[in-house]
Structures are given as structure tokens and as C-alpha cells.
């Protein structure tokens, strides 16, 4: 087990290295540099741009810059931001991580807390009104783009009903009390994944319910509830479990639009801004953070796998 874990961590480090390399290359390959983004319509004097490049070491050859970046990274130094001048990237990221993680976690809870039961009920009550109702609810939320849903939520719940502030993102992630404000964004963010999870659960559940061991169990006279929970659900969850990692990572890293609409100061909006501003240090920082979260989640899933499906062996 320890050997397996060490191996996985080593693999992750290699993956991270390649991601850093690719991002670094691509980032410099994209037309437009940090000073173009800052200058807007102005034509900057060569004087200014050269002096800046010299200061930030951008006039060195790319491999040298990459080596320097990786060296600093190993020492835990993510560099300085061009756009938010003089600020440390690590500080900026830490500052925003709370909000994104909290939002992602809330959304994750909603996705699986509702998605799995809806899928199970749909499968058990197949082709009844409950099946259609459950699916209709989960899919109709997913059938509208998140930014439209988000705006409708704002108008209905914040402006008409007055249950929330219009500026939901304010103070989000600072305290436990702000959790309430995260409900709408989390629901808007999770809707598409919720539909996916409920359908997948339904599909997997149907497949399992058709298996011989369920018939056997039923023939043995086991109670319905016991069959569903102990035998069917556990096996039906296998394909669902494979998705928990990607979905969590997707929720944490995919909240860009939701963060923009609700004004939540998270990593997502910081990442988009940094891409638009060509804030190299910030792009690298957020990309590597995202990559780390995704890989961590995959590792968790792979560790969970044998627990839900004893047929799969680790290592």
C-alpha cells in the first residue's frame, strides 16, 4: 500500500512537471504579453517594455526562464504578479482558495446528496411518475446554461423574494455564516453534474437490478430495502464513484462563470483574469493548483475503488 502510494505520488510529480512545462511553453506561445494586456490601446514605448522585461527577467531565453521558475517553485516561491503589482502569487492564491473550495464542497454535497437518491428512486420506480419527475427536475435544471440559471436565481430569490443579498459573493468563504450565501451559486454550479449523476446512478442501478445475484437475493426472501442498499446500490455506485473525483475537481475548477455572476472572489475568476492579463506567474500558479487538485481527487477515487468494488485490486 505504501509502495503504491509512493509510486502514485511520484507519477503525480512527473505529471505536474509536464503540465508546468506545457503550460509554460503554451503561455509564452500565445500572442500578446503582460504589457500588451496592461497597456490597452496605447502603443508602449520600446523603452518601457524593454526595461520591464529586463526587470522581470523576461528577456532571457525561455528554457532559462523555465529552469528558474521550477527552481523557485521547489523552494515554494511562485513569483510576483504583473497585473496586481508587487503582490506575491502565493498570497493572492491563498487569499482566493477558501471561497472556491467552499463553493466546490457545497456544490459537491448538493450534486451527490440529491443526484444519487434521485437516480436510485428513478431506477426502483422505473417508468412511473416518480421516475419521470425526478429525471425531469434534475435534467431541466441542467438544460439551461449555468449563467442563465444563475441570473434567474438572482432575480427570483434575491430581488423578488429578498431572501439573499444581490451581492452574494460578499464575504463568501470568510466565515461559517457565509455558507448560506453559497446555496444559490452552489446549486447553479452543480445543476449539470447533478443531472449527470442521477442519470448515471439510474442507469447503473437498472443494470444491477437485472443481475442474477439480485434475483437470487430476492428469491432468498431478503427485504427489498436490504437488497437495494446492500447489494444493488453498492454495485451501482461503481461508475458513479469514478466520477466523484472529476466532478469535485470540475466543481472547484469550473466555477469561473458562477464566480463572475455572483461576484465570488475565487480562483476561477482569478484564473480567467490572469489569462486575459497574461499574468504569467498567476497563470502558472493557478494551473498547477488546479492540476494538483484534479490529481489528488483521482488518487482518492482510485483508493476508494477497491472499497466499493472488491473485485478490483490495487497495485
Amino acid at each position: 500500500m505504501t509502495r503504491y502510494l509512493l509510486g502514485r505520488l511520484l507519477q503525480s510529480a512527473i505529471t505536474l512537471f509536464f503540465i508546468a512545462l506545457i503550460t509554460f511553453t503554451l503561455m509564452h506561445e500565445v500572442p500578446g504579453g503582460p504589457f500588451d494586456a496592461l497597456a490597452g490601446e496605447r502603443v508602449l514605448s520600446v523603452e518601457f517594455v524593454r526595461a520591464q522585461e529586463a526587470y522581470y527577467g523576461l528577456s532571457d531565453p525561455l528554457p532559462q526562464q523555465f529552469a528558474r521558475y521550477m527552481g523557485n517553485l521547489l523552494r515554494g516561491d511562485l513569483g510576483l504578479s504583473f497585473a496586481q503589482k508587487g503582490q506575491k502569487i502565493s498570497d493572492l492564491i491563498l487569499d482566493k482558495m477558501n471561497a472556491s473550495l467552499l463553493l466546490g464542497a457545497m456544490s459537491f454535497t448538493i450534486v451527490f446528496g440529491f443526484g444519487v437518491p434521485v437516480g436510485v428512486v428513478s431506477a426502483i420506480r422505473r417508468n412511473t411518475i416518480w421516475d419521470y419527475l425526478g429525471l425531469a427536475l434534475s435534467t431541466s435544471l441542467a438544460a439551461v446554461p449555468a449563467f442563465v440559471t444563475a441570473f434567474i436565481f438572482l432575480i427570483v430569490f434575491a430581488v423578488w423574494l429578498g431572501w439573499f443579498d444581490v451581492r452574494l459573493g460578499k464575504d463568501f468563504g470568510d466565515s461559517l455564516g457565509s455558507v448560506r450565501n453559497g446555496l444559490l451559486p452552489a446549486l447553479a454550479l452543480g445543476a449539470p453534474s447533478m443531472a449527470l449523476v442521477s442519470r448515471l446512478t439510474r442507469g447503473a442501478m437498472l443494470e444491477v437490478l437485472d443481475q442474477d445475484y439480485i434475483r437470487t437475493a430476492r428469491a432468498k426472501g431478503l427485504s427489498r430495502g436490504g437488497i437495494y442498499v446492500r447489494h444493488a446500490l453498492r454495485n451501482a455506485l461503481i461508475p458513479v464513484v469514478t466520477l466523484t473525483g472529476p466532478i469535485f475537481a470540475g466543481l472547484v475548477t469550473g466555477s469561473i462563470i458562477i464566480e463572475e455572476i455572483f461576484g465570488i472572489p475565487g480562483i476561477g475568476s482569478a484564473f480567467v483574469t490572469s489569462v486575459f492579463q497574461r499574468d504569467y506567474g498567476m497563470i502558472m500558479g493557478t494551473t498547477l493548483l488546479y492540476a494538483t487538485i484534479i490529481m489528488l481527487m483521482n488518487l482518492v477515487v482510485d483508493l476508494l475503488y477497491p472499497l466499493v468494488d472488491p473485485r478490483v485490486r490495487i497495485a
Binding site: T15, L16, L26, V272, T287, A291
Partner: peptide, 22 residues
């Protein structure tokens, strides 16, 4: 799986902007 890992752990947006820009 390592190749998928890399593709997979790559933030989509940067990749898309890149292709779009290049």
C-alpha cells in the same frame, strides 16, 4: 493513463484560448 492524466489535469480554458489564439 499518464497521457490522459496530463490532458485531464490541464485547465481547459487555457488550452482553448491557446488554440483559439494560435
Amino acid at each position: 493513463m499518464r497521457v490522459t492524466d496530463i490532458t485531464y489535469a490541464f485547465p481547459d480554458l487555457l488550452f482553448i484560448i491557446l488554440l483559439r489564439s494560435v
